[in-house]
Write a protein that binds this DNA or RNA. Structure first.
Length: 438
DNA sequence: GGGTGTTTATTTACCC
DNA sequence: GGGTAAATAAACACCC
């Protein structure tokens, strides 16, 4: 029987992770500094493990991926997928790397090619997709074969492809409209007088697409992972507060995009190929947003300033200010046992052989020089190449490309967790890390 | 009345 | 810390 203590280690960790930006920045810190003992005495690793680890086998190589060409789906591939069907949020307040570091401390959990951080947004109603509204609109526009699209079609596409929005407060539709109006990337196309229907059409301004093509996606805003309030109500679990919940940090996205640009990797949704399609680099009119219109108007409802809703409804605003405790009982042992059982079912998977320095790391005609970093990405290269000979999937190939790219960019000195979680399909980097454990 | 579009205000997160 | 993009929220007008 496990005896788990959740207070002190958790408090210590949270103490070091305060501040709104710390989630991302602490990724590396957690990876390198959390001891096994620390991990095992904190409940957070368990929480993350439960979220990240379940139902992975069937997803590891089946989930759509941003890099992968999807044949029969207009749905946005979720580059960061995972299963949250058990209803707990993904990596609450901790980066993938941090979560993974703790998972790794559990023997047998990591070593089976798991994909701990994938979310199928098409079916997962609990986690808000990490795409800005502008991105969603753009996705909808690209998915539509038409050059213009109506607001209702945008709504429909989003709800069809992001389960979260099917159940979310319809306020998001207001935000969509707001985005369409404010964002110069979107052009309103008036409806013909004889055209039936309501509202105008919308399309993307090609000039912004061109700008995007000539310059990289420089800026991306990462939405925090948000949990559908219905889930919150269902769970009624007061988990420890975290200042931010983000499963993919901005650095990861940047690397991802740099990788895409460098490799021209196939994507389900290819912003480079789609006319007017732009991801993450929307130029909004400088007059909008920000605090330029500072004006004391009180509030519209006459009340004094009301705290904003927590980014994660699981964490009430008040709760985010303090270190909370698990206020309701959770049968952690059962949950752990259940999750472990699922994990152990993977043991039939063929073990990966260690990387050998003499292995030929030539991939698609490109030779990767091995041996520069003792336990670094060389291992991954070798793994992927060797796996390739065993019918390596596109998924794995993408991982290899991503890793090779990062290495070429001089990122090999990063912590492995950072590198891998930055770009690799996570089903693969779990396998890759296995090598490093050997 | 409901959907749509616009505007204003505020907060949050990220970058420099 | 300032600037700014994005998100959130609300009010309002217009149109079918």
């Amino acid at each position: 029987m496990l005896s788990l203590s959740c207070t002190d280690p958790l408090a210590r960790r949270l103490d070091g992770a305060g501040g709104r930006d710390n989630n991302n920045k602490n990724s590396n810190i957690c990876w390198s500094s959390i001891s096994v003992d620390d991990s095992l005495t904190s409940l957070q690793w368990l929480q993350e493990f439960l979220v990240l680890g379940v139902n992975m086998p069937q997803q590891a190589h089946q989930q759509p991926h941003l890099f992968r060409q999807e044949v029969d789906s207009d749905a946005p591939a979720s580059p960061f997928t995972g299963d949250t069907t058990i209803g707990l949020p993904l990596t609450l307040g901790k980066s993938t790397a941090a979560a993974y570091s703790r998972m790794q401390s559990l023997p047998g959990i990591v070593a089976h090619g798991h994909c701990p951080d994938e979310v199928d947004y098409k079916t997962n109603m609990h986690i808000k997709p990490p795409y800005s509204y502008a991105t969603l609109i753009c996705m909808a526009m690209q998915a539509s074969k038409e050059s213009k699209i109506t607001l209702s079609c945008i709504y429909k596409w989003i709800t069809d492809n992001f389960c979260y929005y099917r159940h979310a407060d319809p306020i998001w539709q207001n935000s969509i409209r707001n985005t369409l109006s404010l964002n110069k990337c979107f052009i309103k196309v008036p409806r013909q007088k004889d055209e039936p229907g309501k509202g105008n059409f919308w399309k993307i301004d090609p000039q912004y697409a061109e700008r995007l093509l000539s310059s990289a996606y420089k800026k991306t805003r990462m939405s925090p992972v948000q949990i559908n309030p219905t889930l919150q109500n269902r769970l009624r679990v007061n988990l420890q507060p975290q200042p931010r919940c983000s499963c993919i940090n901005s650095e990861s996205q940047r690397f991802l995009r740099e990788f895409e640009e460098a490799t021209g990797a196939d994507q389900t949704w290819d912003p480079h190929m789609a006319e007017g399609t732009m991801l993450g680099s929307w130029r909004v009119d400088s007059g909008s947003g920000g605090n330029k219109r500072k004006q004391s108007v009180g509030t519209r409802n006459g009340a004094s300033k009301v705290p904003r809703r927590s980014s994660s409804p699981l964490f009430p605003v008040d709760g985010q200010k303090e270190i909370g405790t698990l206020k309701e009982d959770i049968d952690w042992v059962d949950l752990l046992d259940s999750a472990l059982n699922r994990e152990l079912n993977l043991e039939s998977a063929e073990p990966l052989r260690p990387i050998m320095k003499e292995d030929d790391l030539t991939v698609w005609g490109t030779h990767i020089t091995p041996g520069e970093d003792p336990v670094g990405t060389d291992d991954i290269h070798g793994l992927v190449e060797n796996q390739r000979s065993n019918d390596m999937s596109d998924f794995d190939q993408e991982t290899f490309l991503a890793t090779a790219f990062l290495r070429a960019r001089g990122l090999k000195k990063r912590s492995k967790a950072t590198v891998i979680s930055s770009v690799a399909p996570l089903s693969t980097w779990a396998s890759c890390l296995t090598l490093n454990c050997q």
